[in-house]
Simulated scan of single mutants.
Amino acid sequence: MNEDPAVPRPVILGIDDLRPLPRATRIARTSREGIQLLQEHHDSFIDELWLDHDLGGDDSIMPVVTVMEEAAFSGRPFHIGTIFVHSANPIGAETVVRALTRWNYQVRRTTA
């Protein structure tokens, strides 16, 4: 099956230290890589963003969430269709959902 080059491929980004996220077009494994990935896409539409709370060791998704909150506060939020929070950490996941929902991002808690 040939894909039509005129139809843009969805941009699906994932930030997760372990999961393969097979639908993702790009994956970051640390919060630092996640921030860089988001900054690369700041001026374009992201169809889906998949976030895991715990990223190994002392790393978490919270630095990424802070960047997203600051962008919304400054009037330049990231343009994201849906953010999926798929963490096995229920308290961390709820913290992410609440923080991003407060800034009018469309967020859903789900499993990956």
Rank of each mutant, 00 (worst) to 15 (best):
I12L: 07
I12W: 05
L13I: 10
D16I: 03
D17E: 04
R19M: 08
R19G: 07
R19E: 12
R19C: 10
L21C: 00
L21E: 00
A24I: 06
R26A: 15
R26I: 13
I27L: 14
A28Y: 01
R29M: 06
T30D: 05
S31R: 01
S31N: 09
R32S: 09
R32I: 14
R32E: 13
E33A: 13
G34R: 03
G34Q: 04
I35T: 08
L38M: 07
L38P: 03
L38T: 01
H42S: 09
H42L: 12
D43N: 11
D43T: 10
F45L: 13
I46A: 08
I46F: 00
I46D: 00
D47I: 09
L49M: 06
L49E: 02
L49K: 06
L51E: 00
L51H: 01
D52G: 07
H53W: 08
D54Q: 12
D54C: 10
D54F: 12
G56M: 09
G57E: 10
D58G: 00
D59A: 13
S60C: 13
S60F: 07
I61H: 00
I61S: 05
V64S: 01
V65T: 05
T66H: 13
T66C: 09
T66I: 13
T66F: 13
M68K: 02
E69S: 06
E70G: 00
A71R: 01
G75I: 07
R76E: 12
R76K: 11
F78Y: 14
F78A: 00
H79T: 12
H79Y: 11
G81R: 00
I83N: 02
F84R: 05
F84T: 03
V85Y: 02
A88G: 11
N89I: 10
P90H: 12
I91N: 05
I91Q: 09
G92E: 06
G92D: 07
A93E: 01
A93W: 03
E94P: 02
T95L: 14
R98K: 13
R98N: 14
A99D: 05
R102C: 10
W103G: 01
W103S: 09
W103F: 15
W103E: 11
W103Y: 15
W103R: 11
N104L: 14
Y105S: 00
Y105I: 01
Q106I: 15
Q106Y: 15
Q106H: 15
